[in-house]
Design a protein around this nucleic acid. Sequence first.
DNA 1: CTTCATATTATGTATAGACATAATAACCTA
DNA 2: TAGGTTATTATGTCTATACATAATATGAAG
Lengths: 242, 242
Amino acid sequence: MTDLLSAAPEDPREPMSFRDIKQVVLDRIESRVWPPDSLLPSEKDLAEEFSSTRTTVNRALRELAEEGYLERRRKAGTRVLNAPVRQARLAIPLVRDEVVAMGASYRYVLVGREELAAPGWLAARFGLPPQARVLHVRCMHFADARPFQFEDRWIVTDSVPGVLEADFSAIGPNEWLLQRVPVSNVELTFSASRAGAEMAEFLDAAPGDPIFTVERMTWLRGAPVTFARLYHVPGYGLTTRI
Amino acid sequence: MTDLLSAAPEDPREPMSFRDIKQVVLDRIESRVWPPDSLLPSEKDLAEEFSSTRTTVNRALRELAEEGYLERRRKAGTRVLNAPVRQARLAIPLVRDEVVAMGASYRYVLVGREELAAPGWLAARFGLPPQARVLHVRCMHFADARPFQFEDRWIVTDSVPGVLEADFSAIGPNEWLLQRVPVSNVELTFSASRAGAEMAEFLDAAPGDPIFTVERMTWLRGAPVTFARLYHVPGYGLTTRI
DNA sequence: CTTCATATTATGTATAGACATAATAACCTA
DNA sequence: TAGGTTATTATGTCTATACATAATATGAAG
């Protein structure tokens, strides 16, 4: 097995790629050859060591910094972070795609649809004017005829031209919106809530069951677009890897 | 306001950076100038349009692909993804840092510590041999004297030299581990569970309350290191933005 | 000795060209 | 006409150099 702490691959003819360099640097960080808070050699010095160029070394170190291992500042140099600020990346798929990826078939059912003045709590969350109108849509998503997710969504009608003409009987609001509204900013909040009576009925749960809940707020060019609460069937877990 | 759909900034003397190019391309995607599934002009053509080089255009498009907007393949070109596969990035801070960031003061208390054979469910999860030993540590994390998080952790003793000598009375196992064990691979699962009697007592909750739960499994160079369940005080939400 | 100005250094990013390679298009042969 | 081969193209990445700029070190002056 190649000694990854060495600078060069065993075959001297094979140049070190930016990925090779990342791996060597990461190995040195993890083995404490370069301990937390220590200053790395300059890019210029590393380029010499790896028989590479500053641009290639820069890319390797920049990506390690983006991944939370290093801190870089001009002139100050590159430092190993004391506690890596690791970041998990969560893919946010369409619920249809998520169900299909589970190997199940997807089904959608509209539960309710009404146009109304934005409730106070929503106007407050979004900073909406008092008379703002929203479309409130509730729907169910099924996986192989079993409940998977209950969706409770409010759409700001001024932000989505044509939304009042959409009846959402055949297609869910999220898929409809994705076709029409590119969304720039999303805020997600994961939490646990308690199943109320209606929730329990739709999700085949018992009232009081703990429900994994995702709140999703979206904006387009600074204007609020939607607020959705997604309630998952009991037992659901959202998994990601770093 | 500068018309961002134009290729060049108004001031012809200011060259377009890779960030400018990203923004123009993103604007064209969001405004459907380049609709979903469409093929973008080649990097060479875009470099000409932006009076730039392939390397600069490549960086802009590569980052947009990493952010989930584009799909790129050699020779096949660059396409706009039908549904952006957006990814949220979750910073995974130390619980101490999370509490301090909230403006509260942090306190740690060891609840229990015992060495034992790995329970069957854990051996199964990690693929451990039947006689594997683990250190089971339970502890509480407080924010301003209020319960914040209950931590239930199993540490594979073979993977962590010195762990049996650690009593964890003054410092939590996670901080202790971070000082000694760089962790390469992490799997996180977010879910909702129900507060049992002990949990309710520690977290100042009622039995049966929904509890936002994070399971964290870690490996180093392929070997299992820890399995932790983090239970959060009722009302806790984990927020991230895309 | 302290403060301010200047020099130096290390990273951030751009350019131009080169080579590698995956994927598609075009061409040739049976 | 279909299948196989070859050419072409578009992206992936590297090199070498240059310029920008943030941050630190050094030196000069009061």
